[in-house]
Protein backbone atom coordinates (compact mmCIF):
# COMPACT_ATOMS: atom_id res chain seq x y z
CA UNK A 1 0.00 0.00 0.00
CA UNK A 2 1.35 3.41 -0.94
CA UNK A 3 0.29 5.82 1.77
CA UNK A 4 0.58 9.60 1.93
CA UNK A 5 0.38 11.28 5.33
CA UNK A 6 -0.34 15.03 5.48
CA UNK A 7 1.12 16.54 8.63
CA UNK A 8 1.40 20.05 9.99
CA UNK A 9 3.70 21.87 12.35
CA UNK A 10 1.82 23.89 14.97
CA UNK A 11 2.84 25.88 18.08
CA UNK A 12 3.58 23.67 21.08
CA UNK A 13 0.58 23.15 23.32
CA UNK A 14 1.90 25.17 26.23
CA UNK A 15 3.83 27.75 24.18
CA UNK A 16 2.93 31.29 25.30
CA UNK A 17 1.51 32.93 22.17
CA UNK A 18 1.58 36.63 21.33
CA UNK A 19 -0.27 38.54 18.62
CA UNK A 20 1.65 40.06 15.73
CA UNK A 21 1.68 43.83 15.16
CA UNK A 22 -1.45 44.02 13.03
CA UNK A 23 -3.33 41.40 15.10
CA UNK A 24 -3.97 39.03 12.22
CA UNK A 25 -1.67 36.21 13.27
CA UNK A 26 0.66 35.16 16.08
CA UNK A 27 4.29 36.11 16.44
CA UNK A 28 6.14 33.16 15.02
CA UNK A 29 9.06 33.12 17.48
CA UNK A 30 7.65 30.22 19.49
CA UNK A 31 8.39 26.51 19.83
CA UNK A 32 6.64 24.15 17.43
CA UNK A 33 5.63 20.52 17.34
CA UNK A 34 3.70 18.18 15.09
CA UNK A 35 -0.08 18.61 15.17
CA UNK A 36 -1.26 15.83 17.48
CA UNK A 37 -3.99 14.24 15.31
CA UNK A 38 -1.46 14.16 12.44
CA UNK A 39 0.92 12.18 14.66
CA UNK A 40 -1.84 9.57 15.04
CA UNK A 41 -2.39 9.57 11.27
CA UNK A 42 1.33 8.92 10.73
CA UNK A 43 1.36 6.15 13.32
CA UNK A 44 -1.62 4.48 11.63
CA UNK A 45 0.10 4.69 8.23
CA UNK A 46 3.26 3.10 9.64
CA UNK A 47 1.20 0.27 11.19
CA UNK A 48 -0.64 -0.37 7.92
CA UNK A 49 2.70 -0.52 6.09
CA UNK A 50 4.09 -2.96 8.65
CA UNK A 51 1.03 -5.17 8.22
CA UNK A 52 0.56 -5.01 4.47
CA UNK A 53 3.85 -3.76 3.04
CA UNK A 54 4.28 -0.68 0.91
CA UNK A 55 5.63 2.77 1.44
CA UNK A 56 4.82 5.80 3.59
CA UNK A 57 5.37 9.34 2.30
CA UNK A 58 4.91 12.38 4.55
CA UNK A 59 4.11 15.84 3.26
CA UNK A 60 3.85 19.24 4.92
CA UNK A 61 3.37 22.83 3.77
CA UNK A 62 5.15 25.52 5.76
CA UNK A 63 8.33 27.54 6.35
CA UNK A 64 11.83 26.05 6.64
CA UNK A 65 11.16 25.28 10.32
CA UNK A 66 8.45 22.79 9.30
CA UNK A 67 11.07 20.36 7.95
CA UNK A 68 11.55 19.34 11.60
CA UNK A 69 8.22 17.43 11.65
CA UNK A 70 9.17 15.68 8.40
CA UNK A 71 12.53 14.60 9.85
CA UNK A 72 10.77 13.25 12.93
CA UNK A 73 8.35 11.31 10.72
CA UNK A 74 11.24 9.84 8.73
CA UNK A 75 12.94 8.87 12.00
CA UNK A 76 9.78 7.05 13.09
CA UNK A 77 9.76 5.02 9.88
CA UNK A 78 8.33 7.05 6.99
CA UNK A 79 10.22 6.36 3.75
CA UNK A 80 10.32 9.75 2.12
CA UNK A 81 9.17 13.31 2.62
CA UNK A 82 7.84 16.23 0.59
CA UNK A 83 8.18 19.78 1.87
CA UNK A 84 6.13 22.56 0.30
CA UNK A 85 8.49 25.17 1.63
CA UNK A 86 7.54 28.82 1.96
CA UNK A 87 6.41 31.22 4.69
CA UNK A 88 3.36 32.00 2.56
CA UNK A 89 1.87 28.53 3.07
CA UNK A 90 1.09 29.43 6.69
CA UNK A 91 -1.68 31.86 5.83
CA UNK A 92 -3.46 29.87 3.11
CA UNK A 93 -7.06 28.90 3.78
CA UNK A 94 -7.94 25.20 3.94
CA UNK A 95 -8.92 24.96 0.26
CA UNK A 96 -5.67 26.49 -0.95
CA UNK A 97 -3.62 24.31 1.39
CA UNK A 98 -5.38 21.29 -0.08
CA UNK A 99 -4.74 22.59 -3.61
CA UNK A 100 -1.02 23.00 -2.86
CA UNK A 101 -0.75 19.47 -1.47
CA UNK A 102 -2.69 18.05 -4.42
CA UNK A 103 -0.40 19.87 -6.86
CA UNK A 104 2.73 18.56 -5.15
CA UNK A 105 1.70 14.89 -5.56
CA UNK A 106 0.17 15.04 -9.04
CA UNK A 107 1.63 15.52 -12.53
CA UNK A 108 3.60 17.41 -13.70
CA UNK A 109 5.42 17.72 -10.34
CA UNK A 110 5.13 14.04 -9.49
CA UNK A 111 3.41 10.84 -10.60
CA UNK A 112 2.67 9.41 -7.19
CA UNK A 113 -0.40 7.23 -7.18
CA UNK A 114 -1.24 6.81 -3.55
CA UNK A 115 -3.64 4.07 -2.47
CA UNK A 116 -4.43 5.87 0.74
CA UNK A 117 -4.08 9.43 2.00
CA UNK A 118 -4.43 10.07 5.73
CA UNK A 119 -4.27 13.19 7.86
CA UNK A 120 -5.37 14.32 11.33
CA UNK A 121 -9.02 15.32 11.69
CA UNK A 122 -8.10 18.91 12.47
CA UNK A 123 -5.20 21.15 13.38
CA UNK A 124 -4.45 22.67 16.75
CA UNK A 125 -3.86 26.12 15.21
CA UNK A 126 -6.71 26.90 12.78
CA UNK A 127 -8.90 23.98 13.83
CA UNK A 128 -10.99 24.20 10.64
CA UNK A 129 -11.16 20.41 10.19
CA UNK A 130 -11.44 20.82 6.42
CA UNK A 131 -8.12 20.21 4.62
CA UNK A 132 -8.41 16.42 4.36
CA UNK A 133 -11.98 16.53 3.06
CA UNK A 134 -11.11 19.26 0.55
CA UNK A 135 -8.08 17.31 -0.65
CA UNK A 136 -10.40 14.41 -1.47
CA UNK A 137 -12.69 16.71 -3.47
CA UNK A 138 -9.75 18.18 -5.41
CA UNK A 139 -8.29 14.76 -6.17
CA UNK A 140 -11.73 13.35 -7.02
CA UNK A 141 -11.41 10.64 -4.36
CA UNK A 142 -13.91 9.33 -1.82
CA UNK A 143 -13.23 10.22 1.79
CA UNK A 144 -14.26 9.41 5.35
CA UNK A 145 -13.74 11.49 8.48
CA UNK A 146 -13.00 10.99 12.18
CA UNK A 147 -11.77 7.43 11.70
CA UNK A 148 -10.93 5.43 14.81
CA UNK A 149 -10.18 2.04 13.21
CA UNK A 150 -8.81 0.85 9.84
CA UNK A 151 -8.92 -2.67 8.49
CA UNK A 152 -7.75 -3.45 4.97
CA UNK A 153 -10.05 -5.88 3.19
CA UNK A 154 -9.81 -7.60 -0.21
CA UNK A 155 -11.99 -4.98 -1.82
CA UNK A 156 -10.77 -1.90 0.04
CA UNK A 157 -11.20 -0.61 3.57
CA UNK A 158 -13.43 -1.51 6.51
CA UNK A 159 -13.46 1.55 8.76
CA UNK A 160 -14.78 2.54 12.16
CA UNK A 161 -16.08 6.08 12.27
CA UNK A 162 -16.61 7.99 15.48
CA UNK A 163 -19.90 9.84 15.87
CA UNK A 164 -20.99 12.08 18.70
CA UNK A 165 -21.70 11.08 22.28
CA UNK A 166 -20.19 7.60 22.25
CA UNK A 167 -21.76 6.41 18.98
CA UNK A 168 -19.87 4.67 16.19
CA UNK A 169 -20.48 3.37 12.69
CA UNK A 170 -18.68 0.93 10.44
CA UNK A 171 -18.33 1.89 6.80
CA UNK A 172 -16.78 0.24 3.75
CA UNK A 173 -15.07 1.96 0.87
CA UNK A 174 -12.68 1.27 -1.98
CA UNK A 175 -9.20 2.68 -2.40
CA UNK A 176 -7.77 5.10 -3.34
CA UNK A 177 -9.35 7.16 -0.58
CA UNK A 178 -8.68 9.99 1.84
CA UNK A 179 -9.23 9.49 5.59
CA UNK A 180 -9.09 11.94 8.47
CA UNK A 181 -7.89 10.26 11.64
CA UNK A 182 -9.10 10.77 15.20
CA UNK A 183 -6.61 11.07 18.06
CA UNK A 184 -6.34 7.92 20.13
CA UNK A 185 -6.77 5.48 17.22
CA UNK A 186 -3.47 3.85 18.25
CA UNK A 187 -0.52 4.26 20.57
CA UNK A 188 2.19 6.58 19.29
CA UNK A 189 5.73 5.27 18.94
CA UNK A 190 8.94 7.10 19.67
CA UNK A 191 11.72 7.42 17.14
CA UNK A 192 14.64 5.10 17.83
CA UNK A 193 18.27 6.17 17.68
CA UNK A 194 18.78 4.03 14.58
CA UNK A 195 15.67 5.57 13.08
CA UNK A 196 17.02 9.07 13.66
CA UNK A 197 20.31 8.10 11.97
CA UNK A 198 18.59 6.48 9.02
CA UNK A 199 16.29 9.47 8.57
CA UNK A 200 19.25 11.55 7.43
CA UNK A 201 19.69 9.27 4.40
CA UNK A 202 16.04 9.33 3.37
CA UNK A 203 14.88 11.50 0.46
CA UNK A 204 13.23 14.84 1.16
CA UNK A 205 11.79 16.59 -1.91
CA UNK A 206 11.33 20.35 -1.76
CA UNK A 207 8.48 22.00 -3.64
CA UNK A 208 8.56 25.77 -4.02
CA UNK A 209 5.70 28.27 -3.92
CA UNK A 210 6.32 29.08 -7.58
CA UNK A 211 5.81 25.44 -8.59
CA UNK A 212 2.27 25.30 -7.18
CA UNK A 213 1.17 28.95 -7.37
CA UNK A 214 -0.79 28.51 -10.60
CA UNK A 215 -3.01 25.93 -8.87
CA UNK A 216 -3.94 28.29 -6.03
CA UNK A 217 -6.65 30.91 -5.99
CA UNK A 218 -7.31 33.90 -3.79
CA UNK A 219 -8.24 32.94 -0.21
CA UNK A 220 -12.03 32.98 -0.05
CA UNK A 221 -12.00 33.67 3.66
CA UNK A 222 -9.86 36.09 5.61
CA UNK A 223 -8.96 36.58 9.24
CA UNK A 224 -9.81 40.24 9.83
CA UNK A 225 -8.69 40.29 13.41
CA UNK A 226 -7.20 37.89 15.93
CA UNK A 227 -7.66 38.71 19.61
CA UNK A 228 -7.79 37.35 23.13
CA UNK A 229 -11.38 36.22 23.63
CA UNK A 230 -13.61 38.27 25.86
CA UNK A 231 -14.53 36.58 29.09
CA UNK A 232 -17.99 35.08 29.17
CA UNK A 233 -18.06 35.02 32.95
CA UNK A 234 -16.59 36.98 35.82
CA UNK A 235 -14.03 34.63 37.28
CA UNK A 236 -13.07 34.89 40.93
CA UNK A 237 -9.30 34.44 40.78
CA UNK A 238 -7.78 33.15 43.99
CA UNK A 239 -4.24 34.10 44.93
CA UNK A 240 -1.77 32.85 47.50
CA UNK A 241 0.25 29.80 48.41
CA UNK A 242 -1.22 26.36 47.76
CA UNK A 243 -2.50 26.16 51.33
CA UNK A 244 -4.01 29.65 51.31
CA UNK A 245 -5.54 29.20 47.87
CA UNK A 246 -7.10 25.90 48.94
CA UNK A 247 -8.58 27.48 52.06
CA UNK A 248 -10.04 30.42 50.12
CA UNK A 249 -11.33 28.14 47.38
CA UNK A 250 -13.19 25.87 49.78
CA UNK A 251 -14.56 28.93 51.60
CA UNK A 252 -15.83 30.23 48.27
CA UNK A 253 -17.46 26.92 47.36
CA UNK A 254 -19.10 26.75 50.78
CA UNK A 255 -20.24 30.33 51.30
CA UNK A 256 -20.49 31.97 47.87
CA UNK A 257 -21.31 29.15 45.46
CA UNK A 258 -22.90 27.01 48.19
CA UNK A 259 -22.09 23.81 46.35
CA UNK A 260 -20.44 21.91 49.21
Amino acid sequence: MKILVCIKQVPQKDAPLKLNDDSTWIREDVSYEVNEPDAYALEEALRQKEKHGGEVTVITAGPARASQVLREALAKGADRAIHLEDDKFVRLDSANTARAIAAAVAPPLSDDNFDLIVTGLQSDDYGCAQTGVLLAEILGLPHATIIIGIEKTDGGLHLKRELEAGHYQFIDMKMPAVLTIQSGINKLRYATLIGIKQAKMKPMRKVTWAEVESKLSRNQQEIERLYVPQKQKKTEMIQGSAGEAARKLVEYLKNEARVI
Binding site: P11, Q220, E224, Y227
Partner: peptide, 20 residues
Protein backbone atom coordinates in the same frame (compact mmCIF):
# COMPACT_ATOMS: atom_id res chain seq x y z
CA UNK B 1 -20.87 39.81 8.01
CA UNK B 2 -18.10 38.32 10.16
CA UNK B 3 -18.05 34.96 11.88
CA UNK B 4 -16.09 34.50 15.09
CA UNK B 5 -14.22 31.26 15.60
CA UNK B 6 -11.68 29.97 18.05
CA UNK B 7 -8.07 29.54 17.04
CA UNK B 8 -5.04 27.99 18.70
CA UNK B 9 -7.20 25.75 20.89
CA UNK B 10 -9.19 28.66 22.26
CA UNK B 11 -6.24 30.87 23.17
CA UNK B 12 -7.42 33.38 20.56
CA UNK B 13 -10.62 34.22 18.75
CA UNK B 14 -10.68 35.34 15.12
CA UNK B 15 -13.23 37.41 13.23
CA UNK B 16 -13.36 35.87 9.77
CA UNK B 17 -14.92 37.43 6.67
CA UNK B 18 -15.97 36.02 3.33
CA UNK B 19 -13.69 37.34 0.59
CA UNK B 20 -15.55 35.72 -2.31
Amino acid sequence: LLFTRQMFQGKFAADVSFAG
